[in-house]
Simulated scan of single mutants.
Amino acid sequence: MEVIWFLFFAVLLTGYFALEGFDLGVGLLLPVLGRTRESRDRMVAAMAPFVLANEVWLVAVAGTLFGVYPRLEGEVLFGLYPLVVAMLLSWIVRDAGLWFRRRLDGGGWRGFWDALIAFGSLGLSFGWGMTLYAAATGFTSSPVNPVGVLLGVLVTLLFAFHGWTFLAWRTPGAFGAVRSGRALLLSGLVSALPAAGLLVGAMPYLLEHSAPAATLNVLSVMALPFAPVMLGAQVWVWRTFRPGKGAVPLPSFF
């Protein structure tokens, strides 16, 4: 059962990096590619249908982490408390920008919230890189050091590239490039490499420090049946909003 839950957690974490990575990447690119209000509107509209579905993976990652590996809860929440708070604030700021940018029509209003989307995306991307470094060192080293900062920069660049590939797939030619679904899949796999590398190294520790078998059995009954539902919803979103399904609309909630 420990192996099954480790594989489930690995799929969730790498899946989050591969999916949410392009959302964050598009946010990072707003100041670079969004030179006009119309282009920023198009970028946000391109990723908007995928955002909520992708964030479900993060909720599942957190639930699995604290349910299956309870000893890590204190190390993550208390050992990285300032970083966790900064990432939560970045998440709130990014989502607030997505929700409020179209509540008024003024250019200054949208520009302010677009800047918060970019700032929140940067905080989350950079924070994930530093978190991976702290986890790789067993939470014994502060992530604020040259290696942690470099890993934060690496994850940020990977997400930005993934976001650019997504835009080239979702809105072909609108931002100067066209990419296939295969290229998007490849960029997603590359974005997930830092998380996959951490999981490979941490596998013996995680298997050894899993929750008791009785707890895992209860979690299996409660959680695993919902996995096909989450996967099915993700497939529906991608099939519904893939290129060629009509114009890219601006959802009312974004």
Rank of each mutant, 00 (worst) to 15 (best):
G34D: 09
T171N: 09
P251T: 10
T156F: 04
A213H: 13
Y205I: 01
L83C: 07
L12N: 00
H209R: 15
L104K: 15
I92N: 04
L189Y: 02
F253R: 14
L184G: 03
L58P: 01
A18W: 00
G106L: 09
A168Y: 11
G188E: 01
G173W: 14
L154Q: 11
P49E: 08
G181M: 11
S191D: 02
F100G: 00
A227N: 03
F226S: 07
L198E: 01
V155N: 02
L72N: 05
L185S: 07
L150M: 12
L58F: 14
T140K: 15
E73N: 02
D95M: 03
R103Y: 07
W57K: 00
V68L: 01
P49V: 07
F78L: 14
V51F: 09
A45S: 15
A160G: 10
V147M: 14
V84G: 03
Y81S: 06
D95Q: 13
V218R: 15
L150K: 08
P70W: 13
L167R: 10
P143A: 08
G79D: 07
F8N: 05
G21W: 06
L52T: 11
H209W: 11
K245Y: 04
V59S: 07
A62I: 14
M47Q: 12
M130R: 10
G120M: 04
S187G: 03
G129T: 11
L193E: 11
L216E: 05
L124C: 02
P194R: 10
A62Q: 05
S125D: 13
L116I: 07
V61I: 12
G176A: 08
R170T: 01
L80E: 02
L219Q: 10
F139H: 10
L19E: 10
V44R: 12
L154V: 15
R179C: 00
S90N: 07
P243L: 06
E55A: 02
A223K: 01
L58I: 15
V44Q: 09
A202P: 00
M222Q: 10
G21R: 03
A233M: 15
I92H: 07
E38L: 12
